[in-house]
């Protein structure tokens, strides 16, 4: 279970031209809940606040205001414990090129408090599911981005997390690999995990998400099944919802 209550996050950035510092509200009062056995799609354009929200849920960043709970654990109070039940994947994350997938998974298993041998066994099982078992003992330096993404997925799921956070999970992947990832997400839903994904790929949302939230300018607009969102906004596609939000935002400015 993931629960966000009135979460805020502000960054201070420096204007290179004026040399003045200014505060940017990346996330403004987001509240949402992802139940066990549910896939929640977080949609929004670049810079809308999706990745910041996911990082806060994963315990990588801390909210300035509000509360985030994963499996009943407050991420602000017990970040390490919260991270132990979260599997986080992002396009920003890379793998250690000098290691083989087997070595990396053993090591990260230990980081997550899993016995090295158990971690290796689980890791190899995940690599098999992701059709990468043949490369388990090959240095990752020469891996394609798709292969690296698969290893990252295995790393994120190694400790059997109850909460799975995938930030742009299919970015840069070919159709076949993307399908493998989507199948895996479905399996995780069936296993009763709370899954939250952010993406730009709208067909993916239609295909796998049970509920959808649209982030625009740090605010959450709509929190409902995809069809209901389309009905509410009187749109045929989720892209149209984006355009309407952009137009509304421009009008407000």
């Amino acid at each position: 279970m993931i629960q966000l209550t009135d979460v805020h996050k502000t960054f201070t950035v420096k204007d290179k031209r004026t040399h003045l510092k200014k505060r940017i509200e990346a996330v403004r009062g987001i509240s949402l809940t992802v139940k066990p056995g549910e896939i929640y799609g977080l949609l929004g354009p670049n810079g809308a606040g999706k990745s910041t929200t996911l990082r806060m849920i994963a315990g990588l960043m801390q909210a300035d205001q509000g509360q985030i709970q994963v499996c009943g654990i407050d991420t602000l109070e017990k970040p390490e414990k919260a991270r132990s039940v979260v599997g986080y994947l992002s396009t920003d994350l890379n793998v250690y090129g000098r290691f083989t997938p087997r070595e990396l998974l053993r090591l990260f298993g230990e980081f997550q408090g899993v016995d090295a041998k158990v971690a290796e066994r689980r890791g190899l099982h995940l690599l098999e599911k992701l059709q990468l078992l043949d490369f388990a003992d090959v240095k990752m330096e020469g891996f394609s981005s798709g292969q690296k993404q698969k290893v990252s997925i295995a790393r994120a799921l190694l400790h059997d997390p109850k909460v799975v956070i995938f930030d742009e999970p299919t970015t840069g992947l070919d159709v076949l690999t993307a399908k493998t990832v989507l199948d895996l997400l479905r399996v995780m839903r069936a296993e009763g995990r709370s899954v939250i994904v952010s993406t730009h790929v709208m067909p993916l949302v239609d295909e796998i998400c049970d509920r959808v939230g649209i982030i625009f300018d740090g605010e959450l607009h709509g929190d409902a099944p995809p069809k209901q969102i389309l009905e509410t906004w009187n749109a045929k596609t989720l892209d149209e919802v984006f355009f309407q939000l952009a137009a509304r935002s421009a009008a407000e400015v």
């Binding site: 994963a58 979260v86 980081f111």
Partner: peptide
């Protein structure tokens, strides 16, 4: 630079 620090930070290691 290589983008590996975050993967370390998102583990349960303090």
């Amino acid at each position: 630079e290589r983008g590996t620090l975050q993967s370390l930070l998102c583990t349960s290691l303090p």
